[in-house]
Each structure stands twice: as C-alpha cells, then as structure tokens.
Amino acid sequence: MKSPFHGFRFPAAVISCAVRWYHRFNLSLRDIEELLPERGVSVTYETIRNWCDRFGAQFMRRAKAWRGKPGSTWHLDEVFVKLRGEPYVLWRAVDEHGAELDVLQQKRRDTAAAKRFFSNVLRSHPVPTKIVTNQLHSYPAAKAEMPELAGVKHVFVKASARVNNRAENSHQPTRRRERQMQGFRDPRRTQAFLSRFGPIRQHFALPRHRMNAACHRAQLKARLHAWYEWAGVQLFSVN
C-alpha cells in the first residue's frame, strides 16, 4: 500500500513528530513552528495545522487499537465550555482505568443529547456492565430508551462524593489546553481536535507516580516505537 505520507515535502518522521508534539504537549502551532527549525525543518504553522488535521485521526485510531479492550465500567460526565462566548456541553466517557472512550460536543444537556452520546459511545465500544454518572436526570431517561443498555447497572454519585473522579479528572487536560489556546472557537474543529487529543495524549501520558524510572523509560520507549511504526518510520535508539 502507498504510504499516506507519499507526496509530502517532508518525510513521515518529521510530520509524525509535529503531530505528536501538538497533541501530547501544551504547545501551539506557532510553538512547533519555532521548534522545528532546530531540526532543520522550516514550515509555517498552517502547514503544521494541515498535518494535524490530515493525520491526527489516523494516529488516534491506532492509539485506541493499541491499548486493547476497554474496561467494562463507564464513567460519564459533562462540562460546559465556551466557543466564541457561546456555551456548549462537552460529554465525556472514560473506563475504570481512566482511558477515554469518547467525547462529544453538543448544545444541550437534555435526554436527546444524552441518548445521542450513548449511541456515539456504543458505536465503537461493547456494552458495559456498569455506568457511573452524576445525578443529571438525562442519563436515566436516555438509558431507559435504549434496549442495549436495559441490563446495565446504573450508579449515581454526588459530585461532592468524589466517586466519579475518573470522569471528572479527565476534563483537566482539556481545561489546560483550552487556556493555552485562549479558548475554543469553531465547533466542528473543536470536536475534531478533542476527539484526537484524548487518545493521543493518553498514549504517552504514563502514570509516572506508579512506576520507577526504569519502567517509565521502557514503557515510553515502547510507545514511541509503536507511534513511529504507525508512521512507517524506524525509531532512533532511546537509552
């Protein structure tokens, strides 16, 4: 098969590196534009934006497939974000290990929106054994209308109980990125970016506090090898 990077001015190693930086670190497109000349690459931030738009979804799908089967418990939560001053609701689902399952941006927080979010997650993940949500009434109302979720246990928690921290904490990287980008703007581009951002960031964001230095280096090296293998690039030696 022809490489998806075929015909581009720069090789896959450069493009995949720029895409990884943008989704893993709190860097703007212009920050990456300034970093690349140190590696002999002179491109505009618009070119980097094009690379991220074109190849980000491909790497996101690979990252999701690489982590294997998700957990059987869903933690769901929603948070408000503003796009050009207009409020939107960002729905997010993670499993019991904190791996992001899906994210969906919608205008409303009602039953129809919750049902749409459930359907969106079920399209790419098996039916869970348990879901954990806050006390928003839209969740049980939407669940009752979906036959595939009829036998799924539903646990309600209060925000103050901190039982749903898996979902609540998963919003923090998005909040940090929102501040760094000085707010989100276009709804379509925001949805596309956040769909890619979570899985790619989590592919490299290892639980450093739960592993020693040697284990962390080995895990990071394995994930870097996987990333460049997806791009068809042989990774340099990492000690």
Results as ranks from 00 to 15, higher is better:
E96D: 15
A13L: 05
N26Q: 12
H203R: 03
A167Q: 08
R61K: 10
H225Y: 02
A18D: 00
P147K: 03
S237Y: 15
A205R: 05
F117G: 07
R49I: 04
L235K: 08
E148A: 14
R189I: 00
V41N: 10
R49W: 04
I131H: 05
A18G: 01
N120S: 15
L104K: 08
R24E: 15
P187M: 12
G71Y: 12
S28M: 04
K64Q: 15
H125P: 11
H209S: 13
P87A: 08
N169I: 01
V94W: 11
A114Y: 02
A144M: 10
H209A: 06
Q182T: 07
P207N: 01
A150Y: 07
A112Y: 03
R109A: 04
V94T: 09
C52A: 14
S3E: 02
R223W: 14
A63Q: 08
S42Y: 10
V14G: 03
V132D: 08
E78Q: 09
M1E: 10
R109S: 01
S237H: 14
F197A: 02
A113V: 04
R24P: 00
A150T: 11
G71H: 06
R20V: 04
M60S: 11
K82M: 00
V163H: 10
N26P: 05
L224D: 10
G71K: 00
E38C: 14
R175G: 08
N169S: 12
F118S: 10
R196P: 02
R177T: 04
E148N: 09
N212H: 13
F55P: 12
Q180N: 10
V163L: 03
W230C: 13
I32V: 12
N239Q: 05
S237V: 03
V103A: 07
F197W: 05
R177G: 01
V155H: 06
R67Q: 08
N164S: 09
H209G: 07
A141P: 11
E33N: 02
V14Y: 04
S237E: 15
Q105Y: 01
V152G: 00
S138I: 04
W66D: 04
V132Q: 01
A222R: 14
V233N: 02
T111D: 05
Y88I: 01
A161F: 03
R20C: 01
F8N: 15
C17A: 12
F156T: 09
L149F: 11
Q234I: 06
G183T: 12
A12R: 14
